[in-house]
Design a protein around this nucleic acid. Structure first.
Lengths: 154, 154
DNA sequence: AGGATAAAGGTCAGTAATGGTCAAAGGGAG
DNA sequence: CTCCCTTTGACCATTACTGACCTTTATCCT
């Protein structure tokens, strides 16, 4: 199930979970070798799945002894982080931004995979009913639903 | 008998019944091929027969390795009534109408008193952020939140 | 020291593989 | 004949993957 990129993503996330320090170091060429793909595929995965918007920090150095370091930025406890994320939602929210937020909330176990699916479904349905202000409505809906989840838990 | 759309609907529902997980993944192009129709016919079936209101959740991804995932949850009798109530919400909902609906849902034990309070709080907060279309936004929010509760329960 | 060489990683554009949208045409029941 | 549901097709959008070419850093050799 899933593309090569998905597998590489899972692999890196697993390493990250298993590391004590919330940060790992890897070799692009080696990792590409593990998955039998071109090295630039690793960059693709890093930029699409480990962006800052998704809560990751990637540093690298070229040349002999080069490396790629991937860190997971954490902001306090789980719910704290969630509230922070909610506050970062502006008056508008497009689909990509929503995906980023849901991915982060899932990463931090604020919402489950299923809750994410439901939120996607509901927003899609509701946003479909309007012709204008889709991004504004989406922002409200996502805020409302996430907030609701948090409220229920506290 | 029936239309092509009916057959595709039946086909998907059968797959769903036969799946252990209440969720299947399909390829739009392949399925269209099975029924010798254009791919967009699949979208037609999905939007007309597998809506959220009917208890289905549809997710998809484009691009290489793309997919369409269809999930199903059986909605029990008590909740079925609630879904009807939700469908009766028009494009706009003022505060009074919202109170009516929340009261009825509480009566039927679809939502708890606390959940009702949370919904009031959230809608008030969100509706306050816009100057126009308050009733439209309220309709969306209430539908979304109630739907979410129903989905969580099933 | 300075240049050559090796050893990383980065970029970007092109190609392929999917799915989505929307408006127009078709068709059957009243 | 009209309305509503169905079906189609042209055009669009997104995501994955690869390879050629580029940049940076370390180390070795003279």
């Amino acid at each position: 199930m899933g593309t090569l990129a998905d597998h590489i993503e899972a692999y890196i996330k697993k390493m990250l979970r298993e590391s004590q320090t919330n940060s790992i170091e890897l070799s692009r060429a080696q990792l590409a070798d593990v998955f039998s793909c071109v090295p630039s595929q690793i960059n693709y995965v890093l930029t699409t799945r480990f962006s800052l918007e998704r809560g990751y920090l990637v540093e690298s150095r070229r040349g002999g002894g080069g490396y790629i370091r991937v860190g997971h930025v954490h902001v306090g406890n789980r719910l704290n982080h969630a509230v922070h994320l909610l506050q970062s939602i502006g008056p508008e929210l497009d689909e990509k931004q929503m995906e980023n937020i849901l991915a982060r909330l899932q990463d931090h176990q604020v919402i489950s995979r299923r809750e994410g699916q439901i939120i996607r479904g509901i927003t899609q349905q509701e946003v479909g009913t309007v012709t204008e202000g889709k991004d504004i409505l989406r922002a409200s809906l996502v805020r409302a639903l996430i907030f609701f989840i948090i409220k229920l838990e506290t």
